[in-house]
């Protein structure tokens, strides 16, 4: 384990401890609150943060641009579209069917985005994120329109706008383990994504098929996004801010940096979630709102710094 990873792991321990301790209900003697609410919530937050941060890195390697994440490239909106469609066509469908539909739609949305940006000049680094915002805006408008027409706007709002963890209890978050598994798969394949980031030519020269690495990356991104979106709602900025900070400090040797990114994502989201529980105690601010403030500030700072540091 490298030093940044160790430091973050040590930071996660008190954060997790705080998260287990903070809440409106006091921990009862039988441990019910702990096992049913606190522990699941803490695990859900850490899994979500880690998986989103890793998915952010993967997305950035796929498009070779630092300023994107699955939430700004239409993956989330596409997954929501898939989930909405299956909810309308087959309201009683099993959970795994819904997840499959959301993931497949997220995959399609990501593939369409990758096809869309292929012709953009690579030196114009801001065109890709702008194209992503337009694409996710288009898909998001479709989702909203359908949601409005079918009276499902509230559901759509939860998926796309307000990622938060106050509703997490045992039995309602376990799909996030699957998102964590997808992130672990990406960490396992870290070298492939790093090589893909060096360019198609280099990847081919080293005997890798860029297309198959891309497909793997798209599956990871779509899976993580769809599962997080459907379980707790989209959480912005984690996939953007954490990878950028880690890359600035450690570089893009993903074998070393991807575990750090995962831990960093878990730590940042956990800190924001605890903050959201504390500021207007005994009420809560959704973690996505806390992140919206912290994350956008961090992102602007990164954008502003970027040109000088290449």
């Amino acid at each position: 384990m490298n030093r940044p990873a160790l430091l973050l792991a040590l930071l996660l321990v008190p954060l997790a401890g705080a998260s287990l301790g903070v809440g409106v209900a006091s921990l009862s003697g039988d441990g019910l609150v702990f096992w049913v609410s606190r522990l699941p919530r803490t695990l859900a937050v850490m899994l979500t943060g880690a998986a989103l941060a890793v998915a952010g890195v993967v997305m950035q390697q796929l498009v070779r641009n630092r300023f994107v994440e699955p939430g700004t490239t239409g993956t989330g909106e596409a997954a929501a579209l898939g989930l909405l469609t299956v909810t309308l066509i087959a309201p009683g469908a099993a959970l795994w069917v819904k997840m499959l539909a959301a993931t497949a739609a997220g995959l399609l949305g990501t593939a369409a985005f990758l096809a869309l940006i292929r012709r953009l000049p690579p030196q114009e680094v801001l065109l890709v994120p702008i194209a992503g915002l337009v694409w996710s805006g288009v898909l998001g408008a479709m989702v909203l329109h359908i949601g409005w027409q079918t009276d499902l706007l509230q559901l759509v709002g939860i998926w796309l706008m307000t990622g938060e963890f106050s509703g997490v209890i045992a039995g309602r978050y376990e799909l996030l383990w699957l998102a964590g598994l997808a992130a672990a798969l990406a960490i396992f394949a870290a070298d492939r994504f790093a090589i893909l980031g060096l360019g198609d030519g280099v990847a081919r020269g080293l005997g890798l098929n860029p297309r198959s690495v891309m497909r793997l990356g798209m599956v990871v991104v779509a899976l993580v996004t769809a599962l997080v979106m459907a379980t707790v709602g989209m959480v912005p900025f984690i996939g953007l801010v954490v990878p950028n900070i880690v890359s600035r400090v450690m570089g893009d040797n993903l074998r070393a940096s991807l575990p750090v990114t995962a831990l960093g994502g878990a730590a940042l989201l956990l800190a924001c979630d605890i903050l959201g529980r504390l500021v207007i105690h005994p009420y809560e601010i959704p973690v996505s709102a806390v992140l919206g403030v912290c994350g956008s500030a961090l992102f602007l700072w990164l954008l502003w710094r970027a040109p000088r540091h290449g």
Partner: peptide, 23 residues
Amino acid sequence: ILPQNASVHSRLRVRDLVAFGRW
């Protein structure tokens, strides 16, 4: 193969880049 104008956008250390040659 070393392509003409090999350029890389990743933030890699020299040692890491060279190490990918062994991949």
